[in-house]
């Protein structure tokens, strides 16, 4: 039973590190944000393993839920703004 717990801990921590690495290095920002949301979910599992259910609840609601919504909406607005400036540059070049 103890061995099983160690195997679970080590696998989960590797998943955590791998998700963080992929979120910080994948070339596409959308992918990065989705991986970051998954990272938050695995973090909340880690809190449960550390006997911190209060923190797990907060992380599941905030780290995995609200942060993802904030980041995705900011990315959408960023892309909108980039399109607007791109169009403006194009029309300025055309004139």
């Amino acid at each position: 039973m103890i061995v099983l717990q160690w195997v679970f801990d080590i696998m989960m921590l590797f998943a955590l590190l791998w998700l963080a690495w992929r979120a910080l290095s994948s070339p596409d920002l959308f992918t990065a944000i989705v991986l970051f949301i998954a990272f938050g979910l695995v973090m909340s599992l880690a809190w449960v393993r550390l006997d911190a259910p209060d923190v797990a609840l907060a992380e599941a609601a905030i780290g995995a839920g609200l942060t993802g919504a904030l980041l995705l909406s900011a990315l959408a607005r960023l892309n909108d703004l980039a399109d607007i400036t791109h169009d403006r540059h194009k029309s300025a070049a055309g004139e």
Binding site: L24, L29, I33, F36, F39, G63, T67, A74, L78
Partner: peptide, 24 residues
Amino acid sequence: LGLYALIVHAHLLRKILAINVMGS
């Protein structure tokens, strides 16, 4: 890991992700 990404990446959104990973 987060500190490395914070220094290396230029895009500001990526830097925010890196700071969050550091905080975690």
